[in-house]
């Protein structure tokens, strides 16, 4: 069976991908980054709404999470890209969006929005757990110094919660990098679309899908290292001491055991 695989094509896809593939890879990365940023912002907002005294805000936050965690991401992507303009009665998703030198296709804009909104629903629980993990005395101390809720959140609680939020956030971004492949279905030319089109032209599934899987693995692995660096910095500023790179790396692979050993 293996004999039927053209290993030269696999090698080319892995080691010498063409220019078009790199454009697709770049697109995968920036779509994931922007969508994750949107997700974090929405997640923080939804978490604060969830903890608000105002019942309507809590309700809105609850409905948001209920819908976006309760329906398939693929359905949400189609709904946002094809349905949002019709539903809202105005153009939320333009045919193309020009930002300075960059021009984004409407499908990319819609895809980023859908991924970001979906991600926000998951981030809400992560952010909330992070905030909940901070001792109530921190908010009380801040308030007793005359700080208002917003300032105390921003300066005292959220920076501490960030340390708790970062490890699961890293896992979320790992998922995000892979979930961008779904945008192929609405016509975004990202990494998976490049592989799929290569496959349909050549009928060499193993060669093309193995090649693209390799590159997803490269992206998620690079991200693991970046995350290790971020966490190391956070821990250093938190405790005023440096943890070794490998201790941090261990924390990324296995947060629970690293946390135990740090106690």
């Amino acid at each position: 069976m293996l004999a039927s695989v053209d290993w030269h094509v696999v090698w080319v896809r892995i080691a010498h991908p063409d220019h078009v593939f790199f454009l697709a890879l770049t697109r995968t990365v920036y779509v994931a980054v922007i969508a994750q940023v949107i997700g974090v912002v929405l997640g923080v907002a939804a978490a604060l709404m969830r903890m608000s005294k105002a019942a309507p805000l809590r309700l809105i936050s609850g409905i948001y999470v209920w819908i976006f965690r309760g329906t398939p991401l693929l359905v949400q992507i189609f709904f946002v890209y094809y349905g949002a303009n019709q539903l809202l009665g105005f153009t939320l998703i333009p045919n193309s969006l020009n930002v300075g030198l960059f021009s984004l296709d409407g499908a990319i804009v819609g895809g980023i929005l859908a991924l970001g909104i979906n991600e926000g629903a998951y981030m809400r629980e992560i952010v909330r757990a992070g905030i909940d993990s901070i001792d109530k005395g921190q908010m009380e101390a801040a308030k007793s110094l005359g700080m208002r809720y917003g300032l105390a959140m921003r300066r005292i609680v959220l920076p501490q919660a960030a340390r708790v939020i970062i490890p699961p956030l890293g896992n979320e971004f790992n998922n995000m990098l892979k979930n961008t492949s779904l945008l192929f279905t609405i016509g975004v030319y990202e990494m998976f679309a490049d592989a799929e089109i290569g496959y349909s032209n050549s009928f060499q599934p193993v060669e093309y899908f193995l090649g693209v899987a390799f590159w997803y693995l490269v992206l998620t692995t690079v991200w693991t290292f970046i995350q290790a660096g971020i966490e190391r910095k956070l821990a250093a500023s938190e405790r005023g001491e440096e943890l070794s790179f490998f201790e941090r790396l261990q924390a990324v692979w296995n947060p629970v055991s690293a946390w135990r050993s740090a106690r």
Partner: peptide
């Protein structure tokens, strides 16, 4: 806002310190 302003003139020291660890 005005509660926060009033608190600026009332210091508090807690049993568990509540220093900002970061």
């Amino acid at each position: 806002k005005s509660i926060a302003r009033q608190r600026t003139q009332i210091g508090m020291v807690f049993q568990r310190f509540n220093l900002f660890p970061h």
